[in-house]
Design a binder for these strands. Structure first.
Lengths: 191, 191
DNA sequence: CTGATTTCTTACCATAGATCAATTTATGAA
DNA sequence: TTCATAAATTGATCTATGGTAAGAAATCAG
């Protein structure tokens, strides 16, 4: 619990009152590699804060292709942001890539907190703004970069997440096949 | 001016005080087709609300390739969201695709308003949330769809913006070449 | 440790989309 | 209207990446 409170405390002074209300809606969980936290097609609206470990959101097409929308590690938030803020069922699943410690918060509870403490919305705004910037950058990268460039950016951006992410998932994040990624990696190695 | 106040008023009850403060920071402009509102590499931090007409954000690579990040029409906000919330210079330019009426707001002024009226942040949060959802959907589309699928989704999503957007810009939004788009369009026409 | 399963690599071929170049069509200014 | 310019189309290639299949390497469960 304290990790999240501390993390938020870094950019926002939390009164005791808010802290208590926050604690009341946070669900702490220690999860195993491979655990699914949220299933595609669910009505649950949750955000997950990663205290340690690594998770990802992904989508599997009918013909079995895997698409990774986001990876999240220590101090990141992860969710199905396509459906978090509306009434639709989740499109993505969220799974753990390693033993992880996470905090789950229901979006509706969070919204209540914002209404109760409008000043608390400030920390959230910064959070949303950062997310927008990074999503926009990702789009920019998908539009402008080759497979090799995307991978090189990925390993510098993500510092390869301590090697917990399998390459086929990195490929699915970059929008290329595992085979292509393997070739790109070979090409980089031989140069 | 009234368009923006009205638009915001739809989802948030604006006190006279907030309304006045808002009016004080909004810059209204009527612009021509082809006008550049924000240049790449600028330090200005602005958001633009489109009252009428159509604008886009784009990036030109050194070898002259054009990439469209966003189109905006009536009641949309547009900005270089990659740099709006940080200290970096703008990466994108913003141009008008038709005669348009727009309202320009400095981000710093907006932030002051959020501090002064935390409850005003609520409308902004909804705005940010919607943006996140749509950016995430766009990434999803770029990862999972073929050129033809992307174009078909585009024309249904955007209802082709009353034909003010040239096809080569649509192509640059979808991440394909104008030639490829032309072939896709031909294929759709013959079927 | 060992066999089973998953992930990664490699080779070969296929293809969507890119590139180049030429032509047609549309747009816009005088 | 008319010409100049920009945009769109088309055909002929080319290329980056995809698909398939098989084997190698890594990982995992018992």
């Amino acid at each position: 619990m304290k990790e999240l409170i501390e993390y938020i405390g870094k950019s926002f002074t939390l009164s005791n009152e808010i802290t208590n209300d926050l604690k009341a809606i946070i669900i702490e969980r220690n999860i195993q590699k491979g655990e699914i936290i949220l299933q595609e097609n669910s009505n649950r609206k949750i955000q997950i804060f990663v205290a340690s470990g690594c998770l990802r959101t992904f989508y599997k097409t009918k013909n079995g292709k895997d698409h990774t929308l986001q990876f999240a590690t220590k101090n990141w938030w992860i969710s199905d942001y396509m459906t978090l803020f509306n009434k639709e069922k989740s499109l993505l699943s969220i799974e753990s890539l390693s033993h992880s410690k996470i905090f789950i918060i229901e979006q509706s509870q969070l919204e209540k907190l914002y209404s109760k403490y409008p000043e608390f919305g400030i920390i959230n705004r910064k959070n949303l703004q950062n997310r927008i910037a990074s999503l926009q950058k990702r789009i920019f990268g998908l539009l402008t970069m080759t497979a090799k460039e995307k991978y090189q950016k990925f390993i510098t951006d993500y510092d390869i997440f301590e090697k917990v992410i399998p390459n086929y998932q990195i490929a699915s994040f970059l929008g290329i096949t595992p085979e292509s990624l393997s070739r790109v990696r070979k090409e980089i190695a031989n140069s």
